[in-house]
Write a protein that binds this DNA or RNA. Structure first.
Lengths: 271, 271
DNA sequence: CGTCCTAACAGCGA
DNA sequence: CTCGCTGTTAGGAC
């Protein structure tokens, strides 16, 4: 599901809504999605939520006692807030976190997802602690991107969607980002010129901002169940095979790249 | 260089010529090609050669004290016998093994080669101890070949030329073997039918026997410096790009497979 | 629309 | 025409 734009929205809403609240309990319907025994989650009862932050595709809930709770819906799902009696909890979910004041979160995922529990010292060993810079991080400059592209034989799609290299971009938004930069997904990263790397750098921010401005993908929901405004037709080339390129009219191709589908304009993104 | 046919010939000649003789000394001109300090080779002086055996592309010289000496010419070269005064040693070589009675061997390689020294207990850790069955081993049945092809996603060329799977076939003879079996080198091994696996099994023996019967490749030399009789035109498809297939006349293609060149008849070896 | 593990592959060096 | 190392890719599982 959700890549960086949706997670930034969720994190902000959670910050406004649940930070400062105390955990009352859990309903953990699917033990497989936990990385620790259910008992360890029970020990969080009575602990306060100190903050919520989006890191790449991960959501980090900081708790008292230096514990981190990481809800993750993987390839699709939602994290919904409830507040009795006005907003009752969703019926379908794999995990529920109840908070003081008859509020809480339900976490549902369609395919794979999890609710990880970590001590702060475990973070460096967890994927969420091994993430590359966010495209929006001011410290993430074109020069840094060029250093990343320079020393590898990988293709650019594989590089950018590798969360350890750059965090937050997955197979939903990579297509339009590469299109905006005029870069073919199979381009060897090291073959990009400084100028092209710079274009790619702004394309990342532009592509993600376009989604952020519409409050996320139409088929995703925010913390309050509201769908995003980024519709299928808002994609420039993503998921638009055989439709004309918005710039040159060439039919958009669907190809395989870095193990998954990619959508490219063969004219604007010549290999 | 030399694959199984040439090595079988060499091993037989060495058995007839040097087994029973005592090592008098070494001249090791290129220490890089040794896997042990030169001193350890010196300790072999006075030791008798008990036997010589070809295993895949390796030659195992068994010495007294459970030591093994493994001359290997890698991608090309020769191992030549000398016997003073009639047959003087070659001038160019990287290693020379002198034997009692003014005889000995010179080992020369063109690109990469080595002269390894092992204790018998080291063999399981050495590539020569981790070889798959010989195509000529009576225990190597079509059923065994089918078990090898069955459980992998590899292409058949990569599988057969993997010395850990089957020993002795390299990129010289694989082409004609696959042609004789009517199998394209890029065929996924697991896609071969039982019948086709059986054909491939006999093709291995047939392809190698054709070379053995002519005493090896024309550009290889035996222990006495004699060239083999298998000439370029004796290849069925190997190294014959653009020439007509001997069966159907279709021009033979040179393609890349498993990291190296392959020669195929696109008609007889449809993918 | 994800991440992990592993087999397979490709490039390079010796 | 070699082998082995390493970085990268591809497939299947969850």
């Amino acid at each position: 599901m959700a890549e960086l734009p949706e997670l930034l929205i969720l994190a902000r809403q959670m910050t406004d809504t649940i930070v400062g609240k105390t955990i009352r309990g859990f309903e953990l319907r699917q033990p497989k999605c936990l990385n620790a025994p259910a008992q360890e989650y029970r020990q969080l009862e009575g602990k306060k939520i100190l903050g919520v932050e989006a890191k790449g595709k991960w959501l980090l809930m900081a708790l008292e006692d230096d514990r981190l709770l990481l809800p993750n819906v993987g390839m699709g799902g939602d994290i919904l807030y409830y507040q009795l009696p006005e907003q009752p909890p969703a019926e379908k979910y794999q995990c529920r976190i109840d908070l003081a004041g008859k509020a809480g979160l339900t976490i549902r995922f369609w395919w794979f997802g999890n609710l990880h529990l970590l001590g702060r010292s475990d973070l460096p060993l967890h994927p969420a602690g091994r993430l590359g810079p966010s495209p929006f991080d001011p410290a993430f400059t074109p020069e840094i991107l060029e250093a990343l592209t320079g020393k590898t034989r990988r293709n650019i799609k594989s590089l950018i969607t590798d969360q350890r290299v750059i965090s937050g971009i997955g197979n939903a938004y990579i297509h339009d980002i590469l299109f905006l930069a005029g870069v073919h997904p199979l381009t060897p990263a090291s073959r990009l010129t400084t100028d092209r790397v710079s274009k790619l750098h702004s394309a990342m921010r532009e592509g993600l901002t376009r989604v952020l401005d519409k409050r996320g993908l139409a088929y995703e929901r925010d913390l309050f169940g509201k769908s995003g405004g980024f519709e299928a037709q808002d994609f420039l080339v993503g998921y638009r095979q055989d439709q004309p390129c918005p710039v040159c009219g060439t039919p958009i191709q669907k190809i395989k790249a870095a193990g998954s589908a990619s959508y490219v304009c063969p004219h604007c993104q010549a290999l």
